[in-house]
Design a protein around this nucleic acid. Structure first.
Lengths: 340, 340
DNA sequence: CTGAAAGCGCTTACAG
DNA sequence: CTGAAAGCGCTTACAG
């Protein structure tokens, strides 16, 4: 069964397709009578305008792209959900793209999205080579970065103050009386990770403490990798009394390593994560972590992406960089060292 | 900067747009010489064909829709990732739609996807009213159901043998010597949930045991709701020694309720979940659960959806219903009752 | 082997 | 207030 087109309803309603189009889009004055008649016919024929056709005429596709490292990672799936909801209520749908932080995948997806003429792209994935991005920006397809720094790309970005987040974690641990600390970071190419580490170290420095140079270990961003790295940390002669993990996945790995090593959390070891994903509420002990105000960040980013194009967008050219404050969520995985 | 079109490359290459089109699509014999020239120009101009335009000419949009209750639910985000990967390597992108199992959202998304002329829709969400679906099916947009039964809709479906899954859970608990059991189910409108409960009860029946009529409680599918319902169960005079939860979220709620009530798992209470999501590996104790072979299921569903249209599809009309076997994953949350 | 022309389903000036 | 016509960027017969 072929879908009904604007021609079908025009014929049925006894008007031209131009009038149908005008009626639908509320343009050019169509008399109320005709308009009603047209809408009645549309309903009867179950007519749905083809966005393909109208997109070809320069209108929007009402489709957005979302680039993230991995939808199956709770942190990003939560972002995806927020984006989707916002998009949905604004009439957009979103194409989700998991990049695994691989440049080739980023590139391929970006090209795909361009070919599909999406109305904008939200990027929450690492992109060292801003080349493709810059090209896109030139082609006037709006881009905004979320929870990631735009590496030399002239795009708006909304992110968390990762430096401060690291500081928050350090202060919490310091207040609990810890002094032998370690850091578990994901690969240090990711800018947010670097900032978290820097912030953590700086807070320690301000407090007059310092981190041994071998106290920062980095690994892949997964529970498994985190577990392995944490296990090595715990096997050291001078076992740390607290570990700052740059994301919840790593923190969970650390939790598991501690369990296997028979090290009690938080009595003998404090563990603090980052991101405040659903995972952190589910572990036992529940994870103390640093939360990013994701809902707000998504809302801001979405606004920049979509309204930026809809309004006259007088300031579209001036690149915005919105930084949001993280917050400490204390749960059960951190505490004072049990008696010394 | 306007994007380059087929006209630009035709002009540059000194040929007609028809020839460019043929060269790109490998149709109508284009001499090797011209073809090479054309490709060179395309590269130089960074030409990317518009899928919008070719879709309008009846070609595919290379976009698929995925309907699930909620991307931020780990079970579904894992499905989404598998679908995305398969789609990606076949040249498709996927629009993710979280329906919250609400009919209105299902309907709205379905209509949206239709307007965007997606090449197919994968449905993993409850849909009581098959009406919209049936309409779509008539409009010849391919649909396949995944992990859900197609309610009276003539669409392929690939699902887990939920009845057997429930049975597996029961047998496991039975073998551990339990007799006072209870079930935590999500709203009983969801077909898969009903089957799991039925399977569980049947296995008990075969073993000569029975479930008190008040031993089946249902609630929303969330950790919070599960926790509350489980707490009520645990507060009963005749506290159950084992709870079968129809999904991991509920099981985690039960785990938390037990912790709060001071009931030790698995020593005093066994808890078994369903789905084998990442969450079940992260709890402490780790969750015993029933796994669905999701990767295989997604692969099969995707094949039905995409190849079904690409091949001559001689059997496209005969509706397939593929049922996959679940399996028991024993972790730490189930065990024999400690001494009686 | 190659190109002129029609057409996909819309929208947008422009006449009337 | 309404419609004929051109055009968006492609593809597909059909001539040559």
């Amino acid at each position: 069964m072929k879908a009904t087109t604007i021609y079908d309803v025009a014929k049925e309603a006894g008007v031209s397709i131009a009038t149908v189009s005008n009626a639908i889009n509320g343009k050019g004055n169509v008399s109320k009578k005709k308009r009603d008649e047209i809408f009645k016919v549309m309903e009867r024929l179950q007519y749905q305008p083809s966005v393909i056709a109208s997109a070809l005429m320069g209108k929007k596709t009402y489709t957005l792209g979302l680039l993230i490292p991995d939808v199956s990672n709770p942190f990003f799936s939560e972002i995806a959900r927020s984006v989707e909801d916002l998009a949905h209520s604004a009439g957009y749908s979103v194409i989700v793209c998991s990049t695994d932080n691989k440049d080739e995948r980023v590139d391929k997806y970006l090209r795909l999205l361009e070919q599909k003429s999406v109305d904008g792209i939200l990027i929450g994935t690492g992109t060292e080579n801003g080349e493709t991005l810059t090209q896109l920006a030139q082609k006037s397809i709006p881009i905004v970065m979320i929870a990631r720094e735009a590496a030399g790309v002239s795009a708006h970005s909304v992110l968390t103050d990762d430096f401060k987040g690291g500081g928050l974690a350090a202060e919490h641990l310091l207040a609990l009386g810890h002094s032998r600390m370690a850091i578990l970071a994901e690969k240090l190419e990711v800018s947010s990770s670097v900032e978290r580490v820097r912030g953590f170290r700086f807070a320690l420095f301000e407090a007059g403490t310092e981190l041994g140079s071998d106290s920062i270990v980095s690994c892949d961003s997964s529970i498994k990798a985190g577990k392995k790295a944490a296990a090595a940390l715990l096997a050291r002669e001078e076992r740390p009394s607290a570990i700052f993990c740059c994301n919840d996945l790593l923190a969970i790995g650390a939790l598991q390593a501690a369990k296997e090593a028979g090290v009690k959390v938080p009595e003998q070891l404090s563990i603090i994560g980052f991101d405040d994903t659903i995972l952190s509420t589910v572990t036992n002990p529940a994870l103390t972590t640093i939360a990013q105000p994701m809902d707000q960040m998504v809302k801001l980013a979405f606004g920049l992406l979509v309204d930026g194009q809809e309004n006259g967008a007088p300031d579209a050219s001036i690149r915005q960089r919105i930084v949001m404050p993280p917050s400490l969520i204390v749960r059960e995985s951190t505490g004072k060292l049990a008696s010394g």
